[in-house]
Amino acid sequence: MNYHWNWNVFFQTIPSGDETYLAWIIHGLGWTVSISLAAWVIALVLGSVMGTLRTVPNTGLRLIGHAWVEFFRNVPLLMQLFIWFFVVPEMLPRDWGMWVKQDMPAKEFITAFVALGLFTSARVAEQVRAGIQALPRGQRNAGLAIGFTQAQTYRYVILPMAFRIIIPPLTSEFMNAFKNSGVAYTVGVWELIFVSRQMVEETGGQVIESLIVPTVLYILCAYAANQLMAVIDRRAHVPGFIVAK
C-alpha cells in the first residue's frame, strides 16, 4: 500500500469558505452531539410513557403503547427519516407543507432529531416494559395494598425500581442514539459523517485522515455516554439490592 500521509490537511481551508477542516469537524461534532442529545430526550420521555402504557391494566392504553412500538420499530431509521423529511410535508395541508419546505428554521436538524428520537423511543419503550415486567408481581400488590392508586403505585413503587434495573440496556440505547445520528447527513445536516464524506472528496485522497478523526470522535462520544450512565447507575444504586437475572 502506497499511501501518502498528510495530517496538515486539517489546517487547510475548505473550498466553500474560510474555515479550516479542523474547525469544520468540530462543528460537525457539535451537530452530532446536539442531534443525539435532543433525540435522546424525546426517546426517553416518549419511550417511558409508551413502555409504561404497555403494562397498565387498561386494554385501550396498552394497545396504544403496543401500536406505537410496532409502528416505530419496524421501519429502518433512514426510511423513517425520509418519510418525515420528504413525505410528511406533502401530506400536510398545502400552506403548512409549503411553510415546512421553505420557511421552517433548521428544518434538517429538527427533522433529523425528531426522526431519531421517535425511532429510539420504540426501543426505549421495549426496555421500560421489560423492566417493569421483571419486577415481582407482589410489588404492585404491595403498593395497592397500602392504598396507592394505580398511578401512585407506578410513581412510587414500580417505575423507580424498573428504571434502576434497565440502566444497562438504556446505556446501550443512549450510545446507539449517537451511533445512529449519522443518518442525518442524508438530509443535509453537517454532522460528522457529512463532514467526513466531504473531506474524502475534497482533499483528493486523504481518506484515512478524513475518516479516522470523526471515527475517534464517535468513539469518544459513545464512551462519554457510557460514563455518564455509569455515574447515574452508581448514584441510583440501592444498598443490598441485587438485580436478579
Binding site: 500500500m1 499511501y3 450510545m175 449517537f178 451511533k179 445512529n180 449519522g182 443518518v183 459523517i193 467526513s196 464524506r197 474524502v200 481518506v207 484515512i208 475518516l211 470523526p214 471515527t215 464517535y218 468513539i219 459513545a222 464512551y223
Partner: peptide
C-alpha cells in the same frame, strides 16, 4: 461495536481500493 455502522461502511468502501 463502538464505531457507527455508517462510518464502517465508509471505511471499507474507501479503504479496500487503497489496499
Amino acid at each position: 461495536r463502538s464505531i457507527p455502522l455508517l462510518m464502517m461502511i465508509l471505511w471499507f468502501f474507501f479503504l479496500i481500493p487503497l489496499l
